[in-house]
Amino acid sequence: MMGADFVQFSLVPILIGIFASVACALPGNFLILRRQALIGDAISHVVLPGIVVAFLLTGTVAALPMLIGAAGAALTAVILIEAVKRLGGIESGAAMGVVFTTLFAGGVLLLEQSDTSNVHIDVEHALMGNLESLIWFRATGWASLWDPVALSSLPQELPRMAMACCLVIVLMMIFWRWLKIATFDESFAQVLGIPATGVGVGLVITAAIAAVAAFDAVGSIIVIAMFICPPAAARLMTNTLTAQVWWSVAFATLSAILGYVFAGYGPMWFGSQNAVSAAGMIAVVSGIILGLACVFGPYRARTGADRAPPAL
């Protein structure tokens, strides 16, 4: 399993899965603590019509038009949400629900109606990505990692996702103190002179960048799962923020590796011939990890003022 075949067929998808999972899980930690967990869900819904429109306009699946398209869709969503809120006089949660699902449905319709058969952009791809098809053709073994000719045929999704992941990590390291103070106590942060509103907006934008980058390679299922499952499971494992972030990275990585392996080999263990979707299986594994953390995690009780500290 760890030979030349592994390098050629599995190494790149696993790495992309890890980068995508970690890039989404990191901002997810703060989204969850801010009670905004569903923002990740919303972002990945809104991204779809933006990407489809960008594709229809430019005819390519290049990264930049897609990012611009996604950003445009996000802006449209914000305007629509405000409009629904004001005109309908309803609370923002309901307005978000209406706008995001409508935009997603619109994106699916656009996909179905338009001629996108010549590129790998369709509903299934939007949901599940194309992780398994990201094969490193020229790889002949581990030695290819030092072979510039082989490296030049690496699927472009890998460096793109790696860069997105690095960007998220760097941003989180630079703005760590702002994120922490503004998430815990927004008004105190403002009095300190921290641009708390900007921090909140920046967090959502960072999450959107991670979502768009991941969407292309692994589809929206992973994005939705990784924004919530690893950070939520991590919160149940510890009571400090730094440790929570490390746990979430570990869970995201574990989900990506186990999910890919189970998807590829799991069905064979049960006598079936076909592998299942790796992206779907990665999301499932992250859900199972969250389930296990809910049952066995040491800090699963909300501690509260008058309850005893959890026994370790």
Partner: peptide, 22 residues
């Protein structure tokens, strides 16, 4: 006004007051 289930310790909260110096 804050969520007291936030994953942090007492000394960590007090140290937030040092932000303008740090």
């Amino acid at each position: 006004s804050v969520d007291w289930d936030f994953p942090t310790t007492v000394i960590d909260v007090v140290q937030m007051g040092l932000y303008r110096k740090v």
